[in-house]
Lab assay of single mutants.
Amino acid sequence: TRVETATETAWISLVTALHLVLGLSAVLGLLLLRWQFPAHYRRLRHALW
């Protein structure tokens, strides 16, 4: 049971790290898009909202 718990903890930390990385890359990508294509971003936002 001790090994299982350790594996579970490792998986949880791995998944958390993955989610953090994905979230950060998504935010960075959005910022980059907004910085590179302001007109396109505004049009996209206008279409979405």
Rank of each mutant, 00 (worst) to 15 (best):
R43K: 12
W49Y: 06
R42M: 09
L30H: 06
V21C: 14
H19L: 03
H19R: 02
L33N: 03
L48Y: 06
W35I: 15
L44T: 05
L22F: 05
R34I: 07
A47S: 10
G23H: 00
E8C: 06
L14G: 02
W35R: 15
W11C: 05
L20Y: 02
R34H: 05
G23W: 09
L24G: 05
H40L: 08
W49V: 03
L14H: 04
W49I: 06
L28F: 08
L24R: 00
W49F: 03
A39C: 06
L18M: 12
R34G: 06
T5L: 03
A10W: 03
A26R: 02
S13V: 12
S25I: 05
R45S: 07
E4V: 11
A10K: 13
T9C: 06
H19E: 04
V27M: 14
L31D: 03
R2M: 14
L18D: 04
F37M: 08
Q36C: 08
L24A: 08
I12A: 09
R43H: 08
Y41N: 03
L24W: 07
G29F: 12
F37H: 09
I12S: 07
G23V: 14
L14V: 11
H46I: 06
R45A: 07
G23E: 04
W35D: 09
T1E: 11
L28V: 02
A39S: 13
Q36I: 15
P38F: 07
T7I: 11
A6T: 13
A26C: 13
H46F: 06
L31H: 07
T5W: 00
H40Q: 15
E8S: 06
L28P: 03
R42E: 13
H19W: 03
L44Q: 00
W11S: 04
V15N: 07
I12V: 12
H19K: 03
A47G: 07
E8P: 09
A17E: 02
P38V: 08
V3R: 00
R2Q: 15
G29L: 15
L30T: 09
S25W: 00
F37D: 07
H19D: 01
L28Q: 02
T1W: 12
L33W: 10
H40Y: 09
T9L: 13
L28A: 04
L20M: 12
L33R: 02
R43D: 08
L44V: 14
L31A: 14
L32A: 15
A47P: 04
Q36P: 05
A17S: 07
L44C: 12
Q36G: 15
W49S: 04
A10Q: 10
A39K: 13
H46R: 08
L28S: 04
T9D: 09
A17K: 00
R43W: 09
L30I: 11
T1H: 13
T16R: 03
L44E: 00
S25E: 02
T7R: 11
P38A: 14
A6P: 07
L44N: 00
F37R: 04
A17G: 07
W35T: 15
L28G: 02
S13D: 05
R2G: 11
G29A: 15
T16G: 06
T5V: 03
T1R: 12
Q36R: 15
V27T: 12
G29K: 02
V15Q: 06
R42K: 13
E8T: 10
R43Q: 10
S25F: 06
V21G: 07
A6H: 08
V21E: 04
A6V: 06
A6L: 09
S25Y: 01
G23C: 15
